[in-house]
Measured scan of single mutants.
Amino acid sequence: VSFKITLTSDPRLPYKVLSVPESTPFTAVLKFAAEEFKVPAATSAIITNDGIGINPAQTAGNVFLKHGSELRII
């Protein structure tokens, strides 16, 4: 599955597209996205474009099915 993750704390709204296997734990996606944007993973969260928080204790495939591919990291 592929996710387009936007960094909301930067006024330029940079984004990265990450492709991972469906079975990947979403905690790993969060950690990798945080490292890519050089923000601390421990204090970061991934939310939907509607501002709904995503529980990272599920697979990337589940997140994709529930929330789609466009996400934000805060």
Results as ranks from 00 to 15, higher is better:
55 N>R: 08
72 R>D: 06
5 I>K: 00
19 S>P: 06
58 Q>S: 09
16 K>Q: 11
56 P>E: 14
53 G>D: 14
61 G>T: 05
45 A>D: 06
60 A>Y: 01
60 A>D: 02
1 V>S: 02
45 A>T: 09
62 N>M: 10
52 I>Y: 11
69 S>R: 11
16 K>W: 04
38 K>Q: 12
40 P>W: 01
21 P>Q: 10
55 N>Q: 11
41 A>K: 07
71 L>G: 00
3 F>T: 01
66 K>L: 11
4 K>Q: 05
34 A>N: 09
40 P>A: 06
67 H>V: 06
3 F>K: 00
2 S>E: 06
65 L>F: 07
53 G>H: 02
25 P>I: 11
40 P>K: 04
21 P>S: 13
17 V>A: 14
56 P>H: 14
30 L>M: 10
10 D>V: 05
66 K>Q: 13
26 F>N: 03
32 F>L: 15
64 F>L: 11
42 A>H: 05
29 V>L: 08
3 F>E: 00
70 E>A: 11
49 N>F: 02
56 P>C: 14
58 Q>T: 05
51 G>S: 04
26 F>V: 14
70 E>T: 05
29 V>K: 02
19 S>D: 09
16 K>F: 08
26 F>Y: 04
26 F>W: 15
71 L>Y: 03
6 T>E: 04
49 N>E: 07
42 A>I: 04
16 K>A: 12
35 E>G: 07
57 A>T: 11
72 R>G: 15
64 F>M: 11
18 L>S: 12
43 T>L: 11
55 N>A: 14
17 V>L: 06
53 G>E: 15
15 Y>F: 04
65 L>M: 10
48 T>R: 05
73 I>E: 04
13 L>V: 11
20 V>M: 13
3 F>A: 00
47 I>K: 14
8 T>H: 14
49 N>A: 06
63 V>A: 13
36 E>Y: 10
47 I>H: 15
66 K>R: 08
49 N>T: 05
17 V>H: 06
30 L>G: 14
50 D>L: 05
6 T>Q: 06
70 E>Y: 04
5 I>F: 14
74 I>S: 15
65 L>E: 13
56 P>F: 08
55 N>L: 11
11 P>A: 10
72 R>P: 04
35 E>Q: 10
68 G>A: 08
35 E>K: 08
34 A>M: 09
17 V>R: 15
66 K>Y: 06
3 F>S: 01
